[in-house]
Design a binder for these strands. Structure first.
Lengths: 340, 340
DNA sequence: AGTAATAGTTGGAGCGCTCTACAATCAATA
DNA sequence: TATTGATTGTAGAGCGCTCCAACTATTACT
């Protein structure tokens, strides 16, 4: 299990260690003859460059650390596709770690990359407090995706969550809904803005008194709990705006369990437009985030930083769009009792 | 962005670099006084150990590289939970990379870890040819999860795919089905065994002439394409056995699109029992894989290797179980024409 | 011919850490 | 008092690589 070193390759090829290094880095100042000899020796020995040593000497790993908040949420897989593509194209590789939707794990994930000295870090859907992000930006090149701040030490790439929420409310109000409840994303990335957007839009449409926010988080389970809460007291809402698709899945599941028809009895709208929302058995009305594009932008902004092409922070806000499917329809006037 | 080194911490604390190293490694042979001084200096400077240098000198990273075949499949997220838990418990951290469901990417992911010299590698759902795995095991400590081989240079942890497939067939035959088609997982991990298990079970139940296998892969899209293929010619099957849940999602979607009722017109069974299979709107009959347990086992076997507690390979095969939900029911006798 | 420029190669310092061997200090023992 | 042993600390080599300055060989130019 002990790997050959450059020294081994060099002596086998009958050249110096420095020359081997040049070959490995594809330097043009090497004769074709030596290059071939070195590559052959390397091949024979099964030589594989030691990134640790490489980095220590060069200060570059050509590696980007990617912290995904939740592996269970397909949204992150879609973002990763975009990031991966853009990174590879620019000659970088990515390495992933997961925040497991809790702060301690996210911090640990970030620390790992800091200790590995990856060239930069992309945080997707981070829940870290802004002060923490600020501190992080002092230690490494940072881009935060799917969350907005106005920091001037790192870049952010996101859709306009407030606008997205407003689109949801407008859509539902246009369908005749008044009692539109929102199960929020708690500490999740963008959750505050979605909540604010919901509230502002409700007020704007003259529905201040119908604002009803249930505390949740970005998980399926929060959706089921949220429904229980909504049905347990007060007047049943005619529409539910779930903070994201994953949660909407839980909501839909629970509504069905309670015997409520969607959208006949209750309308439901999600957020993210993940692949599962498009399925027939789900067919969820939701706010579309152009994940791949977001991912690509995040990677490109980071790479711009790595190449030192830019100093000042960029905050890129994309416009979301509403995708109407079959979980939203005209408001029902039936009460919970009548339905049951 | 330039980080302080041990040397900086040492001079600030008024001790030697070696002592700082001892403190950082929690050595007991350091006086409380110096320890405190060092930690304070480190804190003040914002010192963070350089894993690259650490590894170069110590030959250990306390890091496990995890290659997930497909981030879009929740099965891998669930496996990761188990692996993560067991790794953390043993003092290891994990770093993830994705194979993007294609060989070149998987190879690249593996190469990354090899270059990083992570202490070991866990491959989940790998599609690499066995020769490649064998070669890999020569370069690093390896555990392969969710796939079976009989290699004696690395460990494997998996459920018995053949048995799982057999359970599916038995269940469907017991419900009166004869024309049971299988959309297979192509090059996917375990797909061959599931296919073989399906075939053997069909033969065992005297249904050799009804064996019908459609080529697919572990993706939603393959499910929709598979259905198209099944409906385009020949007699319509009364039941479909999809190679995994992700694919079953696509199948269900397509069947609904074609106006076929599940399970009234066609029964459907998946494989994996991912979280989405349990949802009411899906409620998929499927084969359960104890993902977390599989993940934990994989991590533990790897750590045993790292701690050099074992030399010979272990091949752990867990028994799957069938979870009956609402996509499987008595065989229908209606033809496609009658339904339409 | 003499000089300059270019291409190809090399030795050695150094990246930030660990680890071995050894030094220094002090208390306990002979 | 001399010796031993335990405890704590340090110097220095070395991990595998990059990078720079310097060197050699070859070609081009005056």
């Amino acid at each position: 299990m002990v790997q050959p070193t450059m020294e081994d390759v060099a002596s086998r090829a009958g050249v110096s260690r420095a020359l081997v290094s040049l070959v490995m880095r594809n330097s043009p100042r090497v004769s074709e003859q030596s290059r071939a000899a070195v590559l052959e020796a390397a091949e024979e020995l099964g030589y594989r460059r030691n990134l640790m040593a490489h980095h220590l000497a060069s200060r570059r790993t050509m590696t980007i650390g990617l912290v995904l908040n939740d592996l269970h949420n397909p949204f992150f897989a879609e973002m990763t596709d975009g990031i991966h593509e853009a990174a590879i194209e620019a000659g970088y590789r990515i390495v992933i770690n997961t925040g497991l939707r809790n702060l301690a794990s996210e911090q640990a994930a970030v620390d790992t990359f800091l200790e590995f000295r990856t060239d930069g870090v992309i945080l997707v859907g981070s829940e870290l407090p802004e002060a923490e992000l600020e501190a992080l930006a002092k230690e490494t090149n940072l881009v935060v995706a799917a969350r907005v701040t106005d920091s001037d030490s790192y870049d952010t790439v996101s859709i306009d969550d407030r606008l997205g929420a407003r689109m949801v409310v407008d859509h539902l109000v246009d369908l005749g809904h008044c009692r539109i409840a929102h199960i929020d994303g708690g500490p999740g990335a963008g959750a505050r803005r979605r909540r604010e957007g919901y509230k502002a839009a409700m007020e704007h449409r003259g529905l201040s008194k119908h604002v009803r926010i249930v505390a949740g988080e970005y998980s399926e389970h929060a959706g089921t709990v949220g429904v229980d809460e909504l049905l347990s007291h007060g007047e049943m809402p005619t529409a539910i705006f779930a903070a994201n698709d994953l949660m909407a899945t839980g909501v839909l599941d629970r509504l069905q369990f309670e015997g409520l028809k969607v959208p006949d009895d209750v309308s439901l709208v999600g957020f993210d437009n993940t692949a599962m929302a498009a399925l027939h058995q789900m067919s969820l009305t939701t706010v579309d985030q152009p994940c791949e594009l977001l991912g690509q932008l995040a990677a490109r902004y980071l790479i711009e930083r790595l190449d030192e092409e830019r100093e000042e922070a960029v905050h890129h806000l994309l416009v979301p769009s509403l995708v109407c499917r079959s979980t939203s329809g005209p408001a029902s006037s039936r009460t919970l009792e009548e339905i049951r």
